[in-house]
Each structure stands twice: as structure tokens, then as C-alpha cells.
Design a protein around this nucleic acid. Sequence first.
DNA 1: CTATATTGTTAGATTATTCTAACAAAATAA
DNA 2: TTATTTTGTTAGAATAATCTAACAATATAG
Lengths: 226, 226
Amino acid sequence: MISCRIFILMNSLTEENYLKALFNLAGEKGEVGVNDLSRHLDIKMPTVTSMMKKLAEKKLVHYETYKPLRLTEKGRKEAALIIRKHRLTEMYLVQKMGFGWEDVHEIAEQIEHIHSPAFFDKMDELLGYPKADPHGAPIPDKNGKFAWIAYDRLCDCHPGDTVRLLAVVHSASDFLKFLNQRHIHLGLRIKVHSVEPFDGSMVVAYDNRHETLSRMVCERLLVEKQ
Amino acid sequence: MISCRIFILMNSLTEENYLKALFNLAGEKGEVGVNDLSRHLDIKMPTVTSMMKKLAEKKLVHYETYKPLRLTEKGRKEAALIIRKHRLTEMYLVQKMGFGWEDVHEIAEQIEHIHSPAFFDKMDELLGYPKADPHGAPIPDKNGKFAWIAYDRLCDCHPGDTVRLLAVVHSASDFLKFLNQRHIHLGLRIKVHSVEPFDGSMVVAYDNRHETLSRMVCERLLVEKQ
DNA sequence: CTATATTGTTAGATTATTCTAACAAAATAA
DNA sequence: TTATTTTGTTAGAATAATCTAACAATATAG
């Protein structure tokens, strides 16, 4: 049967979640510790270790005992394609179904595991081939390639700077609701008014109003200087 | 944690597939044999037996050894809600995403397992609360209630009858492509021209053309007499 | 540079879902 | 009504994904 061949190549939902976490946790060096992965997936370390051995068998992860974990090129690509499905879905939910950007993560977390190229191609087409998701995160292309953009963090800007908000980091629902309350959205033009030296909070101006934003918030706002 | 309570109540994807099959195979009496279920799910009988014991524990199925299987009221409702998600999804894929009615089953088969009331409520709203899926099958309401409609089969009509096509039975992709080729779609007004006595095939007229349809096809076309 | 803390591994058990082999009941046919 | 076929069950094993307990290596702090 044709379906057999397809399923032999397919990763389980569980494996997909490990790949995605591995990708998302990988920093500059592309390395992740077992403990780190364990905490983020809320799965105990021995379970993670045994899954790493399995993924290494499948040539998705470079695994050597007591060494940091690294995705192989194949693993990196598969992770990117799952992230592509996640981000396309988030964009679709916001643009075509009317969800708020704070409500789409949970749903996309499930839909990203749907196996149907036609379904995601259709979303992509209906959205006009978007380059970023509703939180400004880049959507990898069909080959799993990311268009990395070097954003500035708002906290690294100076009084007098005028910037445009292009993305938010770690789109937790609470944080996004906080931004909603202050009418802060992607594309917003913001002017830095002043910075408090002791706590790093900033007074910013936008839409003819002023707001004080904590350092924590400013670290999560990614901007482009005008 | 709140999530714990939710997950205790939740059925696994596997259980959901058993419930759905149990519902779909139940005839007049609402009874299904283990063998029947086994063949339709492509799962061996002993596995089915053990799952039936598990579903009986959860009060979803009435199970007694060597007796036919019957869904409980609770099981019937849960099955109906999965079918609701399946059919809403099919309708959404056709109406809002531009898929053909022959291409939506496989995708809906996966999306029906998504846990997100908001997602399906939104589909329902965007579709204007449809009563049937793209194949004419009724969409149960949020309480799992079906609005059963008594259709006639085209094969039970007589020469001279004029009917409207309201639903098709067992929407296999091949059958739907066959109908597409002949421009046969839901809502089509069809006039029965003649019936061949030996093989039950019919000559019918629609859209200023004539077509001969085999008995097998006519059995699968559900109509309303005009 | 040892002592301690952190991180990672191994071994063995558990649960969910599946299987095969062997057996038992029910239905059907002779 | 007995023999045969079909249907259904039990028992026992396999795989995937998870856990706890115990141990080992690495990293960190005195």
C-alpha cells in the first residue's frame, strides 16, 4: 500500500513536538541541554534521553552521551516545516477567521500536526503568501528556510528614537492581552520619550498618548528604527 | 491544575475513532458487531474487544460478551459531537477555502480531533450555521442532536418524476469525481426519463442533457420529489 | 583541587494500543 | 440435529511513550 510508505517516513506527533522544542530552544550554537528540553516539554529527563536516542536513529538529532543536543540538517528542516504550519495557521486564524493574536497559539499548536500539504498550501495562497505570523515571527518557506531579520529591541533604543513595532517575543496570551489594553499592535509607530536609569522602564509616545512600559515589556518589543 | 480535570474527561484520538465508527455503523437498531467494527477500522477483533471493555468502563458503550455493541446515550452524544466537527470542517473547507467536495474528507478526518470549541464555533458562525455538510449529510447541533430528514433514493423514483438532489451517500472521492465529470451537484433538478428493468439503470435528464446512471449510482443519490 | 550541586544516564516498571495464537460461542448448512 | 463456518473472547507478547529510583558524569563553589 502507498499509505505504508508514507507512514514509514512520518514522525509521530510526539516526535514532532520534540523536534519543534529542540529548534525553539536552540540558541546561537544550535545546542540544547537535555534538562532544558525536559523542562520546556514538561517531560522527565530519562524520557527525553530515550527519545533523543530514537531521533538519533532516525538521523534527526546528533546525540552523544553527556554532550549537548543538536538537530541534524534533516531534523532542522522537519522542525522548520512544523513551525511553518504553526505560523501559517496563526496567520490564517487572525486574518481569515477573526481571532485575536492572543488566542491563536493553542489552536495552532494542534493544527500544526495535520498532515495535508494541500491544506496548508491553500492557507498560504488565501493569505497571499505571508512572510510573518501575527506576532511578527518569520514563516519559513516550503524548504524550511527562514528569512532572518535583525530587529532591534525597544529596550535598546534611546530617547528621541522613533521606531515601528515589527514583532513581539514569546507571545504568551497574558502579555498580548496587556498590549491589547494599551492598543499596542504590530506596525505601530512609537517614539521613545525617556528611559528611567534604575529600572530600565521607558516612557513612550504613540497615537497621541504616553505610556510607561517596564523593562520586561520593552525587551519583548522588536522594532525597526525609522 | 485545571488542565488535569479537562484531560480526565477527554477521550483519546483512538477512542474518538472507535466512537465515530460505532455511530456510523449502527443501523436501525443501533447495534454493531465486533467483526463489523474490526473490519471498518482495520483493527483486529481482539483489540476491538478490549477497547469495548474500556469504553464500557467509561460508560460510553453497552458491552456484554457475545452481544452486539450499542453506544450509551453519553457515547452517542460524544460521537455526534465528533461528527459535528467533521462536517462543519468539510463545509468550511468547501465554502471558505475553495476545496472540492471530493477532497475534504481526509482533512476533516484529522481536524475533527482538534480540541477547541472556539475554533468550531467560529467556523459555524462564518458559515452561517449550516444544517448540512457539502455531501448533504446533516450537521448535528451542539447537543449532539441530529435533524433526520427522510430522503428518497433516486433508484426508487419512477419515469416522469422530477426531483432535486439533496445528498449523496458514502462520499468516496472516486464517486464524487464521477459526479463532477457529469456536472451532478447538490441542488440539481433531475427528471427521470426511463428505467431499465434488468439492471435498474436509469436514463435521467438535467441541464438540457441526458445521462445513463447505473443502479449503484442511483442508490447513492438522495433526492426530494418535487 | 576537592566537595557539592547540577545534569544526564541506566534500569526497570507502567499505560495505551496494537498484535497473534488458541479457544469458545453462535449462526448456518447439511 | 449434528457439522461447519463465522464471530467473539482470552491469554500473552510487542511497541511507543511515559514514569521513578539509583547511579554517573560534569560543572560549580569553596
